[in-house]
């Protein structure tokens, strides 16, 4: 090697050409990456851009092409009960997620930490329910819920959403809790906790990423869902925003700018929830546990 012959103090000089040689290439790579990201962002954001600009026109302006008006935003509340609908969506969403967490956390704890007969079989059956698509069980569910006389208000929809979301949450929590050392729970039990105490005071605090993951994914899914809300919530004053917008869109005299304004409002909560929890998301999905 030439470096052996090179005096130590001149060695850096010999190396310098390599640096400017490589740096521009890395810089170019970064710019390409940046351009690609920018393109992706543009594709993703374009619909929002259209929605925003369309909503800022009156119906006349929309049809004729140009102009600016707050009209559709001002009239929105009189066209559909948007406040009520957002409230309904929030109630259905939070209640469903609550049920999913309340069932999923202890189930995941039991499957990962307790030894009981046929636990593997029960777990597999439970988790295989994740593979069943909503559409496949929609009719039987509808029959069930109708027989329980729950198709009027929130409760039926909450049950259906919870049933659909729970298998995934059980799966995620079970895998996550498997990474929690048994000794941690045993230490708690020797210190005087019961199983529920250990779950609540030791496991839940370190399962925040997993809980956040379940919450975000389920929130987005339930908030954006139309089908279940449409079928199971028949009282018009309890219908969620997605159903409200669908009804608006189906109307004969639909104002497109108003529809866009409503859609924008309905899209905001899911984005907010995502932004709040996103720093946990990657952590939760990779099931890493910080020890």
């Amino acid at each position: 090697m030439t470096t052996l012959a090179t005096p130590p103090d001149t060695a850096p000089l010999d190396d310098t050409p390599a640096v400017p040689d490589r740096a521009p290439r890395r810089k170019v790579g970064r710019w390409i990456l940046f351009a690609v990201m920018l393109a992706i962002a543009a594709v993703m954001l374009y619909p929002f851009w259209v929605m925003i600009f369309t909503s800022l026109k009156s119906e006349q302006q929309f049809l004729s092409g140009g102009g600016f008006s707050w009209l559709s935003w001002r009239d929105l509340t009189s066209v559909i009960p948007i406040g009520q609908e957002i409230l309904s969506s929030t109630i259905v969403c939070s209640a469903s997620i609550l049920v999913i967490l309340v069932v999923g956390l202890p189930a995941g704890f039991a499957f990962s930490k307790l030894r009981f007969r046929a636990s593997t079989a029960v777990f597999l059956i439970m988790v295989s329910a994740m593979m069943v698509p909503l559409q496949a069980i929609l009719m039987p569910e509808f029959v069930n819920v109708t027989r329980l006389h729950l198709t009027g208000g929130y409760l039926g929809a909450i049950l259906v959403y919870a049933a659909l979301g729970t298998p995934f949450s059980v799966f995620l929590f079970t895998t996550y809790f498997r990474g929690v050392p048994d000794e941690l729970i045993e230490a708690g039990i020797v210190d005087g906790l019961g199983y529920f105490g250990a779950l609540w005071r030791l496991v839940v605090p370190i399962a925040i990423p997993a809980i956040a993951t379940v919450t975000v994914l389920q929130f987005i899914q339930i908030w954006d869902d139309l089908l279940v809300g449409l079928l199971f919530i028949q009282n018009t004053n309890e219908r969620p925003i997605t159903v409200g917008l669908a009804v608006l869109a189906a109307g004969r005299t639909t104002s497109i700018p108003e529809l866009m304004a409503g859609s924008l409002i309905s899209a905001v909560p899911a984005m907010v929830v995502y932004l709040i929890f996103q720093r946990y998301l990657v952590k939760g999905l990779t099931m890493g546990i910080d020890r």
Partner: peptide
């Protein structure tokens, strides 16, 4: 919990979400 014995585990099994003070005092709090 009714045996009133304390155990030290090989890997210590400290509660990762609690400070040292909380770790030591946990059993008393319960």
């Amino acid at each position: 919990k009714d045996r009133d014995v304390a155990m030290v585990f090989q890997n210590y099994a400290l509660y990762p979400n609690m400070s040292v003070e909380k770790n030591i005092g946990f059993a008393l709090k319960i």
